[in-house]
């Protein structure tokens, strides 16, 4: 499908409009004040224009996040579309920032904007990248942790798209469990 915008200038519309968010850690401010909406886009061409103008994931300072969410969903547990959901979490080793992070994050973004999870794409809320000294993390957030068919389908497709070895296990954690945990360990609800 194409939007006619004149000869040679067609843009390809996406199924959803997406919002890109940036989080920069400043301990003197409350969490929400460190979260900034960068821009929104709804075509393939605009996605690439934005992607080529912002810093690569591997160039961000530790403590920064990128988040890409469907327009109307805020990248936080409290949003009504996230509250009962959870995330497929990919935790990277420190050395993967240089070797793998940019490729894995781009692949995650392409899964989202291309609606790679077919009819279960409806369940996808967004994706979050955390750049951290102790190891970076990438996650796809979905809206209903109890929706096992959707969650497991998304997990299987996502793992395949990332090109992870079958030996690597990734886990899905409910936000409700992450929010109430008493230590850094959150139990996996599903694994693929």
């Amino acid at each position: 499908r194409k939007l006619p915008l004149g000869e040679g200038l067609e843009k390809h519309p996406l199924e959803n409009r997406w919002a890109l968010w940036f989080f920069k850690n400043d301990r003197n401010r409350v969490w929400q004040d460190n979260l900034h909406l960068v821009t929104k886009f709804e075509t393939v061409e605009d996605f690439w224009a934005i992607h080529s103008h912002i810093k690569l994931a591997s160039k961000l300072s530790s403590g920064c996040d990128y988040a890409l969410f469907k327009d109307g969903i805020e990248p936080m547990w409290e949003d009504s579309r996230n509250k009962h959901g959870g995330r497929w979490l990919v935790s990277l080793a420190k050395q993967q920032r240089q070797s793998n992070l940019d490729r894995l994050w781009l692949e995650t973004l392409l899964c989202l904007i291309g609606e790679a999870f077919e009819e279960y794409s409806e369940e996808v809320c967004g994706a979050v990248l955390n750049v951290r000294t102790k190891g970076d993390k990438i996650a796809i957030w979905t809206s209903e942790a109890e929706n096992q068919p959707a969650v497991t389908f998304i997990g299987r497709v996502y793992k395949e798209r990332l090109g992870l070895s079958p030996k690597v296990i990734i886990g899905y954690q409910a936000h409700a469990d992450t929010a109430t945990k008493s230590n850094s360990f959150t139990k996996n609800k599903f694994v693929v």
Binding site: R1, P13, V44, W48, G114
Partner: peptide, 18 residues
């Protein structure tokens, strides 16, 4: 049934088109 799905190959081609 009218969801707009783009595969990886198509999205990557769009990156390189003028």
């Amino acid at each position: 049934g009218t969801r707009i799905i783009y595969d990886r190959k198509f999205l990557m081609e769009c990156r390189n088109s003028p």
